[in-house]
């Protein structure tokens, strides 16, 4: 309740710019599939997706203006998931 009066208001323009950015990234990742990159295609697609997710988290989900604790938790979740994948693949990679 301490922050009730100084709530941050994001302007419509900011959201508009963020949306345009996200759309551009979407078209980039679609465009990349037309270039023959071999196994790199997936890597690029996932990289672009990660950038998009980062933007959605930061602006749409307002993380930029949230407490450090929430930011750390969110980061922790993605790290946790990455670790689960890696550990599971200790099995599948080395069979």
């Amino acid at each position: 309740m301490d922050d009730k009066n100084k709530k941050h208001i994001t302007s419509y323009q900011t959201y508009g710019i963020v949306l345009v950015g996200l759309l551009i990234l979407t078209f980039i990742s679609v465009g990349v599939t037309w270039i023959e990159l071999g196994p790199l295609t997936v890597t690029v697609a996932l990289l672009v997706a990660s950038v998009k997710v980062f933007i959605v988290l930061t602006y749409f989900m307002h993380l930029k203006y949230d407490s450090l604790f929430i930011k750390l938790m969110v980061a922790g979740i993605f790290i946790l998931f990455a670790v689960i994948i890696v550990i599971t693949f200790l099995d599948y990679w080395f069979r």
Binding site: L80, V83, I84, I87, L90, D91, Y92, W93, F94, R95
Partner: peptide, 21 residues
């Protein structure tokens, strides 16, 4: 404790690396 689940699967056919880990 979150990362030790595989010790239930030693005899299931997991890779050796995963087992020692």
């Amino acid at each position: 404790g979150y990362f030790v689940w595989g010790h239930h699967m030693y005899t299931a056919g997991m890779s050796g690396t995963a087992r020692w880990f």
